[in-house]
Lab assay of single mutants.
Amino acid sequence: TTVEVQGVEYRFDNPEEAEKFAKKMAKSLNLRVELHGNKWRVE
Score class of each variant (00 low, 15 high):
Val3Ile: 02
Glu17Ala: 10
Thr1His: 14
Phe21Tyr: 06
Leu29Lys: 05
Lys24Gly: 10
Glu43Ser: 13
Asn14Ala: 08
Leu29Gly: 05
Lys39Met: 08
Thr1Glu: 05
Tyr10Ser: 02
Lys24Phe: 14
Glu34Asp: 07
Glu34Phe: 12
Lys23Phe: 10
Thr2His: 08
Ser28Phe: 13
Val3Gly: 00
Glu34His: 13
Pro15Val: 07
Asp13Tyr: 08
Val8Pro: 00
Arg41Ile: 15
Arg32Phe: 09
Asn30Asp: 08
Val3Arg: 00
Phe12Gln: 01
Glu43Asn: 12
Gln6Ile: 10
Val5Asn: 02
Glu4Trp: 13
Val33Asp: 02
Val3Asp: 01
Gly37Pro: 02
Phe12Tyr: 04
Thr2Val: 14
Val3Cys: 14
Ala22Lys: 01
Arg41Gln: 13
Asn14Ser: 12
Ala18Met: 01
Pro15Lys: 07
Thr1Arg: 09
Trp40Glu: 03
Glu16Gln: 11
Ser28Gly: 06
Asn38His: 05
Glu19Gly: 04
Ser28Asp: 14
Arg41Met: 14
Gly37Ile: 03
Glu16Val: 11
Trp40Phe: 06
Phe21Arg: 00
Gln6Ser: 09
Val33Ile: 13
Glu4Leu: 13
Asn38Gly: 13
Leu35Gln: 11
Met25Leu: 11
Glu9Ser: 09
Arg32Pro: 11
Ala26Asn: 02
Glu19Val: 05
Ala22Ser: 02
Leu29Gln: 05
Thr2Gln: 08
Asn38Asp: 12
Thr2Glu: 07
Trp40Ala: 03
Ala18Lys: 00
Val5Ile: 11
Glu17Phe: 05
Ala26Trp: 01
Ser28Glu: 15
Phe21Pro: 00
Phe21Ile: 02
Lys39Thr: 12
Glu19Phe: 09
Glu9Lys: 06
Glu4Ser: 13
Asn38Pro: 08
Ser28Val: 13
Leu31Tyr: 06
Val42Met: 05
Val42Ile: 07
Asn30Met: 05
Glu4Val: 14
Ala26Thr: 01
Glu9Met: 09
Lys39Asp: 07
Val3His: 00
Val3Phe: 02
Ala18Glu: 00
Glu9Gly: 04
Glu34Val: 14
Arg11Ser: 10
Val42Thr: 05
Ala26Glu: 03
Gln6Val: 10
Gly7Ala: 03
Glu43Val: 15
Arg11Phe: 14
Glu16Thr: 10
Thr2Ser: 10
Arg32Ile: 12
Asp13Glu: 12
Lys20Arg: 13
Met25His: 03
Leu35Trp: 13
Glu17Val: 07
Arg32Gln: 12
His36Tyr: 08
Val8Ile: 11
Pro15Met: 10
Lys27Asp: 11
Glu19Ile: 06
Val3Thr: 01
His36Glu: 10
Ala26Val: 02
Tyr10Trp: 09
Lys20Leu: 13
Arg11Glu: 11
Ala22Leu: 03
Val8Arg: 11
Leu29Pro: 03
Met25Ala: 07
Arg41Gly: 05
Lys24Leu: 12
Glu4Asp: 12
Phe21Trp: 07
His36Val: 14
Gly7Lys: 04
Val33Gln: 02
Glu4Ile: 14
Glu9Cys: 15
Ala22Ile: 04
Glu9Pro: 06
Val3Pro: 00
Thr2Pro: 04
Leu35Asp: 02
Lys20Phe: 11
Glu9Ala: 07
Asn30Ala: 05
Phe12Trp: 02
Phe21Glu: 01
Glu19Ala: 08
Gln6Met: 14
Met25Thr: 06
Asn38Glu: 08
Leu31His: 06
Glu9Ile: 13
Gly37Cys: 15
His36Lys: 10
Pro15Tyr: 08
Lys27Val: 10
Lys24Arg: 12
Glu4Asn: 08
Arg11Ile: 13
Asn14Phe: 08
Glu43Cys: 15
Ala22Glu: 01
Glu34Cys: 15
Glu16Cys: 15
Lys39Trp: 05
Lys27Met: 11
Val8Gln: 09
Trp40Pro: 03
Val42Cys: 15
Lys24Ala: 14
Leu31Gln: 05
Glu17Cys: 15
Thr1Leu: 11
Thr2Leu: 14
Tyr10Gly: 00
Glu19Thr: 03
Ala26Pro: 01
Ser28Arg: 13
Asn14Glu: 09
Lys27Tyr: 08
Lys23Leu: 11
Glu19Lys: 07
Gly7Arg: 03
Asp13Lys: 09
Tyr10Glu: 01
Glu19Asn: 03
Ala18Gly: 05
Val5Leu: 12
Lys39His: 10
Arg41Thr: 14
Tyr10Phe: 11
Gly37Leu: 05
Lys20Val: 10
Trp40Thr: 03
Asn30Gly: 14
Lys23Cys: 15
Lys23Ala: 06
Val42Lys: 01
Asn30Trp: 04
Glu43Gly: 15
Lys20Thr: 10
Glu4Gly: 04
Gln6His: 12
Ala26Tyr: 01
Lys20Ala: 12
Gly37Ser: 04
His36Thr: 10
Lys39Gln: 08
Met25Cys: 15
Val3Ala: 02
Leu35Met: 09
Phe12Met: 02
Val8Ala: 06
Arg11Asp: 07
Val3Lys: 00
Gln6Glu: 11
Arg11Thr: 12
Arg32Ala: 11
Glu16Asp: 13
Trp40Met: 05
Asp13Gly: 09
Thr1Asp: 07
Glu34Trp: 10
Ala18Tyr: 01
Asn14Gln: 09
Arg32His: 14
Val33Tyr: 13
Ser28Thr: 11
Leu31Pro: 01
Pro15His: 06
Arg11Trp: 14
Thr1Gly: 07
Ala18Arg: 00
Glu4Tyr: 12
Glu19Trp: 09
Val33Pro: 08
Thr2Asp: 04
Pro15Ile: 06
Glu34Tyr: 13
Phe21Ser: 00
Glu17Tyr: 06
Leu31Met: 13
Asn14Trp: 07
Val3Asn: 00
Lys27Cys: 15
Glu9Asp: 07
Leu31Val: 09
Val42Leu: 07
Trp40Asn: 03
Ala22Val: 03
Ala18Val: 00
Pro15Leu: 06
Glu9Asn: 07
His36Ile: 14
Glu9Thr: 12
Gly7Met: 04
Arg32Trp: 09
Thr1Phe: 15
Gly37Met: 05
Glu16Phe: 11
Thr1Pro: 11
Arg11Leu: 13
Trp40Val: 07
Glu17Ile: 07
Glu17Asn: 06
Lys23Pro: 00
Gly7Val: 01
Gln6Trp: 12
Leu31Glu: 04
Lys24His: 14
Ser28Tyr: 13
Trp40Asp: 03
Pro15Asn: 07
Leu31Phe: 07
Asn30Val: 04
Leu31Ile: 06
Trp40Arg: 03
Lys27Leu: 12
Asn38Ile: 04
Ala22Thr: 01
Glu17His: 08
Ala22His: 00
Thr1Ala: 12
Arg32Lys: 12
Ser28Lys: 14
Lys27Arg: 10
Phe12Val: 01
Ala22Asn: 00
Arg32Thr: 13
Val8His: 09
Trp40Gln: 04
Glu43Thr: 14
Asn38Val: 04
Glu34Leu: 07
Lys39Cys: 15
Tyr10Arg: 03
Gly37Asp: 13
Phe12Pro: 00
Lys27Asn: 10
Glu4Gln: 10
Thr2Ile: 15
Leu31Thr: 07
Glu17Gln: 08
Asn38Gln: 05
Leu35Pro: 03
Thr2Cys: 15
Val33Ala: 15
Arg41Leu: 15
Ala26His: 01
Trp40Lys: 03
Gly7Tyr: 03
Lys24Val: 09
Lys20Glu: 13
Ala26Arg: 01
Val3Tyr: 01
Phe12Asn: 00
Glu17Asp: 12
Ala26Leu: 02
Gly7Ser: 04
Lys23Asp: 05
Phe12Gly: 00
Asp13Leu: 08
Val5Met: 08
Ala18Asn: 00
Gln6Asn: 12
Glu43His: 11
Lys20Ser: 12
Gln6Pro: 01
Thr2Phe: 14
Asn14Lys: 08
Gly37Tyr: 04
Asn30Tyr: 04
Asn38Trp: 03
Arg41Cys: 15
Leu29Cys: 15
Leu35Gly: 04
Glu16Met: 12
Val42Ala: 04
Phe12Glu: 00
Lys20Trp: 12
Val5Pro: 00
Thr2Gly: 05
Val8Glu: 07
Glu19Arg: 07
Lys24Met: 13
Glu17Ser: 09
Asp13His: 09
Lys39Ile: 13
Lys39Phe: 05
Lys24Tyr: 13
Gly7Asp: 04
Val33Ser: 05
Lys39Asn: 10
Glu4Pro: 00
Asp13Gln: 10
Glu16Arg: 09
Thr1Asn: 11
Arg41Trp: 14
Ala18Gln: 00
Tyr10Leu: 04
Lys23Thr: 07
Phe12Lys: 01
Lys24Ser: 13
Met25Ser: 04
Val5Gly: 01
Arg41Ser: 11
Leu29His: 06
Val5Ala: 04
Val5His: 06
Thr1Lys: 06
Leu35His: 11
Leu29Met: 07
Ser28Pro: 02
Glu9Val: 13
Lys39Tyr: 07
Val8Thr: 08
Leu31Gly: 14
Glu4His: 10
Val42Phe: 06
Lys20Gly: 08
Asn30Ser: 05
Val5Asp: 01
Gly7Leu: 03
Val42Ser: 04
Asn30Thr: 02
Val3Leu: 02
Val5Trp: 06
Asn14Cys: 15
Ser28Asn: 11
Met25Trp: 06
Phe12Ser: 00
Glu19Ser: 05
Arg41Tyr: 15
Glu43Met: 14
Ser28Ala: 14
Ala18Trp: 01
Glu34Asn: 09
Glu16Tyr: 11
Leu31Ser: 07
Arg41Glu: 12
Thr2Tyr: 15
Glu4Lys: 05
Pro15Gly: 08
Val33Trp: 07
